[in-house]
Design a protein around this nucleic acid. Structure first.
Length: 461
RNA sequence: UCCAGAGUAGCUCAGUGGUAGAGCGGUCGGCUGUUAACCGAUUGGUCGUAGGUUCGAAUCCUACCUCUGGAGCCA
């Protein structure tokens, strides 16, 4: 079989070519007097290749019946286009109709709403918008690995099935092979000692604890994989299955942690700006007209930093009327975060040193005894994109934190061992992959940056 | 889970108590190196579901389902 030229390469050709082969799907077809124009797309780029099908082709009557969505293999000559709008076009010597699409094919050449395309998630990557989103998703994943690998971080595959529910109950998916109709029992309770893993197990909500173990051996590590939350969250920013990037650094404090978070956000924005120009152009035209200006702004301006206490003061003195109260000891609400990043600082802002009462047990207690070394990186349009902290490395303080959070230290023996043997200051954060993708593409619903989204009540496909 | 809004043709929508509509798509024909081509014709409906009010309901009422926006939780 002759080698196939990706349409992306054909469009970037520097010289005509007598004989190439392309394969792809029909986007549109227009008849002319003695021939037909076919716009062919193979997903290698946003742009289509214009194919000229002359009426001298033996199967021209079949070609005239082609509709959007049909798949073709075309052999012909790549020549300079006579028309405007494209540099090259392919004059076909032979067109094989690999698979016709029929008149029930749901995608038109006209634009569709993202909501409709979501209902046909198996076909939506054939649209300009979703093809672009998923090409950028691929590039973003690559850039993440590149960022960490360039800096000497070691990629750790933390487990997806886990026995620890460190973030608290009620938000995990149970993993079990127990027969739901006839479960083994111990008294009135289900006997999980008879389950597959001889204990209760769940889908992971975070690889952090395991990443800490590896950071305390390999110094700088990162995880990048799927995580799961059984929260009944119905918003455009939450999914039940999503990907998270979690670096963890030994011999690192909160400042180093904040530095890394700001550095990676800038790095990823710059990488996508440079490597996905066609896609970014599409997003800025059809998704969010302010996108490029906002991203360039993020690249140019230094990120701001403010303590939680200062942020509360700023909010209190802002003169702004907020729906929710601003009070020391309360969580910052979405409207507060938006005001800080969009109205006050007008750039990404990192808030740090939060009251210990509103943060998890593993965050390091500051010397004031009131705050912990937590940090949230807020970006305009999305809100919180990174959450991280310096971890509590002192065994006695960590055990006290656990008791304060009504946790049994005995359940976390292996985690406490990290503090018993060669403990070190260490820090890390979680960066939501989809939220980052939303930020760089301008796409406003998380369901539209995941190939097949899982959300409460919805796991079709 | 809470608050608000919306479900009418394959898609986007109009129709607000009295015969179910348009544009796009599809189909047929015409024209044409076209660019979301153009021109003409045509096709296409259990008005989200189930009850109720009424002589009569897409339209008013109730419940439920789904989607969207916002909120909580967070990444």
């Amino acid at each position: 079989m002759a080698p196939t030229t990706p349409i992306k390469n054909a469009l970037q050709a520097s010289a005509p070519s007598d004989a190439i082969q392309v394969q792809g799907w029909v986007r549109t077809r227009r008849d002319s007097k003695d021939f037909s124009f076919i716009e062919l797309n193979d997903g290698s780029s946003l742009k289509n290749l214009q194919v000229i099908a002359r009426n001298s082709l033996p199967n021209y009557s079949d070609i005239q019946k082609l509709t959007t969505g049909a798949s073709l293999r075309v052999n012909g000559a790549l020549v300079a286009s006579q028309g405007k709008g494209q540099k090259w076009e392919l004059v076909a010597d032979k067109i094989d109709i690999v698979g016709p699409a029929g008149d029930s094919y749901p995608l038109q050449k006209k634009g569709h709403t993202p909501e409709f395309l979501r209902e046909i998630a198996h076909l939506r990557p054939r649209s300009n918008l979703f093809g672009s989103v998923f090409r950028v998703r691929s590039r973003l994943a690559f850039a993440i690995h590149q960022f960490f690998q360039e800096r000497g971080f070691i990629y750790v595959h933390t487990p997806i099935i886990t026995g620890s529910d460190c973030e608290g109950a009620g938000e995990l998916f149970r993993v079990s092979t127990i027969d739901l109709k006839n479960p083994p029992r111990k008294g009135d309770d289900i006997d999980y000692a008879k389950d597959f893993f001889a204990r209760q197990t769940y889908l992971t909500v975070s690889g952090q604890l395991e990443a800490e173990a590896f950071a305390c051996a390999l110094s700088k590590v990162y995880t990048f994989g799927p995580t799961f939350r059984a929260e009944n969250s119905n918003t455009s920013r939450h999914a039940s299955e999503f990907w998270m990037i979690e670096p963890e650094m030994a011999f690192c404090d909160l400042n180093g942690d904040m530095d890394l978070a700001e550095e990676i956000v800038k790095y990823l924005v710059r990488d996508i700006r440079e490597n996905c120009p066609d896609e970014m152009d599409l997003f800025s035209k059809f998704v969010d007209k302010e996108l490029l200006a906002r991203l360039d702004f993020v690249l140019e301006r230094p990120f701001q930093r403010t303590t939680y206490t200062e942020a509360i003061d700023l909010l209190k003195n802002s003169g702004e009327k907020f729906e929710f109260p601003v009070e020391y000891g309360l969580n910052l609400q979405s409207e507060h975060e938006r005001w800080l990043t969009e109205k006050h600082f007008k750039c990404p802002v990192t808030v740090f040193n939060f009251p210990k009462e509103i943060k998890p047990f593993y965050m390091r207690l500051n010397d004031d005894g009131k705050t912990v070394t937590a940090m949230d990186l807020l970006v305009p349009g999305i809100g919180e994109i990174v959450g991280g902290s310096q971890r509590e490395e002192r065994l006695d303080v960590l055990q006290e934190n656990m008791r304060r959070h009504k946790m049994d230290p005995a359940d976390y023996k292996w985690y406490l061992d990290l503090r018993r043997y060669g403990t070190v200051p260490h820090a890390g954060f979680g960066l939501g992959f989809e939220r980052m993708l939303m930020f760089v593409t301008g796409v406003s619903n998380i369901r539209d940056v995941i190939p097949f989204a899982r959300t409460p009540g919805s796991a079709e496909f």
